[in-house]
Design a binder for these strands. Structure first.
Length: 518
DNA sequence: CCCCCCCC
């Protein structure tokens, strides 16, 4: 099949001219090698399979370059989809120079073709492209072994001999703040190739790629940006630029991805530009909930936003502010939102992969966009196979798509606190050969639940996509809805169509193994 | 400041 790779993309990445997808390019590249990386942490019992890492070598047909797959995308490899020959579009990536090597950190990607013949004869980009420190400026770490305990494979990559980037050379410290700064100002970019990662000494070994070994650790502050911000020139040298400054992506996946947190350069926002505005679609909306605790009564509601870059963030408002905005917020609509406060995500109530959360105040501005922005998807899914749920922790949040093979009538359930709610049980089955029990709670029972029941009673086995389902440990593993879950019946997605085809052709007659005990 | 995801 003829497929155009993005010509010159690798060279640009290596030169630092294409550092991340927000520069407008989502390069189409071919995977020419996939390697599993064995990390130190994998040998520790406390850290499970989440520390598996995959290195890939990417090609634009002319040049090749190593990259690393964010762990939340490991399933691309595990499912056998991403392989040698795959053609991919990098939809979210960060290029960074680490240990004197340029590395492409693949945070998200589209798989365009699972396997294709190798295109061209790509060669590694010639070394001198990466600007070297001048002689006599070896960096404070060089030659000081104590600063680099991780320069042995311990704590680092113990990967296969030819794995790109395996060398654990110490990083250089930028030789000249002034020159780096002015150079970057000239280029208008926030990080040019001669701005090496300025890791604090103690973290230089645990930095990249040693930090790989620490994957899976959740939200540890000590990993927050090992770079010195002082070395990062501003993103916008023109402070008068009217557009909102885009500063969110570096933290987008930080809670799940130490590697991304380490490597995504901070977007420096001019003080004069602190009045951000986001344009995003509401993808989920919780109930307006009243609560009563020792501190008094109150009410709260939350909703999720998704923007055209694939960023997602939760917005929460309390009390009078909740009343102010609750009726205005509609799922599916696009809004301009500004003057909210950005604070650390309340993980107990926030299930999005973002360390930040927006809290609206009475002075916040929520403005509907009447021209629907088609560049913002209606929903963003990260579907996992049902078989994957077996390995997920209690309370994990996941997106699942499957065929409804059974649904129970709605029943009234008394909560432990004495209040009542509705419940339905259904079973989902997918191509992984597994099935799982899904509990619908509250309104889901009468809305989507009733439609599903009607279809089921008519002898149909509808496709159901679950966005933001919650994994629980009851009876093996099962799933439940939470207030911000979304259900989609017979959705018009490729995944739904292939499931339908699979089920009609063979899946219907293949007994599946339930991961829930009935 | 402020919600704790429901049941067998």
């Amino acid at each position: 099949m003829a497929m155009n790779l993005t010509e010159g993309a690798i060279m640009k990445m290596c030169r630092g001219e294409l550092k991340a997808e927000d520069e407008g390019v989502k390069p189409i590249l071919q995977v020419i090698k996939v390697m599993e990386v064995v990390t130190k942490a994998q040998q520790q019992p406390s850290s499970s399979s989440s520390t598996e890492r995959y290195w890939v070598v990417l090609s634009d047909g002319t040049h090749q370059q190593q990259g690393i797959l964010a762990t939340q995308k490991n399933y691309f490899v595990k499912d056998g989809k991403l392989q040698k020959g795959s053609i991919v579009r990098l939809t979210h990536f960060v290029c960074d120079e680490v240990q004197r090597r340029m590395i492409i950190i693949i945070v998200d990607l589209d798989l365009i073709i699972e396997k294709s013949d190798l295109i061209g004869e790509p060669v590694p980009v010639a070394k001198p492209v990466v600007v070297q420190s001048p002689a006599g400026q070896p960096g404070t770490g060089t030659g000081n072994p104590q600063s680099f305990p991780g320069s042995s494979p311990v704590g680092g990559l113990v990967n296969k001999p030819n794995a790109a980037g395996a060398s654990m050379e110490p990083p250089r410290i930028n030789q000249s703040y002034g020159s780096a700064y002015s150079r970057n100002s000239d280029s208008g970019r926030y990080a040019a190739p001669n701005v090496p990662a300025a890791y604090p000494k103690t973290e230089s070994s645990a930095g990249y790629p040693g930090s790989v070994s620490l994957g899976g650790s959740y939200g540890e502050q000590s990993f927050r940006n090992p770079r010195s911000e002082a070395l990062q020139p501003p993103l916008n040298t023109s402070a008068h630029q009217p557009q909102p400054v885009y500063q969110q992506p570096s933290s987008m996946y930080t809670n799940r991805e130490p590697i991304a947190r380490n490597e995504a350069p901070p977007r420096i926002t001019p003080i004069a530009a602190l009045n951000w505005t986001i344009k995003a679609r509401v993808t989920a909306k919780g109930e307006l909930k009243h609560y009563n605790n020792p501190r008094g009564d109150g009410k709260v509601f939350s909703f999720y936003l998704l923007d055209s870059d694939g960023g997602e963030i939760q917005v929460t408002c309390f009390n009078a502010v909740a009343d102010q905005f609750f009726n205005q917020i509609e799922v599916g609509k696009v809004y301009l939102i500004s003057k909210g406060s950005l604070r650390p995500a309340q993980k107990a109530y926030n299930h999005l992969p973002n360390d930040q959360e927006i809290f609206l105040e009475s002075t916040s501005i929520v403005q509907p966009c009447f021209d629907d922005d088609s560049s913002i998807p209606q929903q963003q899914f990260h579907f996992r196979h049902i078989s994957d749920i077996e390995g997920m922790d209690n309370n994990s949040i996941t997106d699942i798509i499957g065929i409804v093979t059974f649904i129970s009538p709605s029943a009234s359930i008394m909560r432990k606190n004495g209040t009542e709610t509705q419940r339905r049980i259904l079973y989902l089955k997918d191509m992984s050969g597994r099935s799982v029990e899904l509990t619908l709670w509250g309104n889901f029972c009468n809305a989507e639940g009733q439609s599903l029941q009607n279809m089921y009673d008519s002898g149909l086995f509808p496709v159901l996509a679950v966005k933001t389902g919650r994994v629980n440990d009851f009876n093996g593993k099962s799933l439940g809805t939470i207030s911000t879950s979304q259900l989609f019946i017979e959705p018009n997605y490729p995944e739904a169509h292939s499931l339908r085809r699979w089920f009609d052709e063979e899946g219907r007659n293949i007994p599946s193994v339930s991961i829930s005990i009935h």
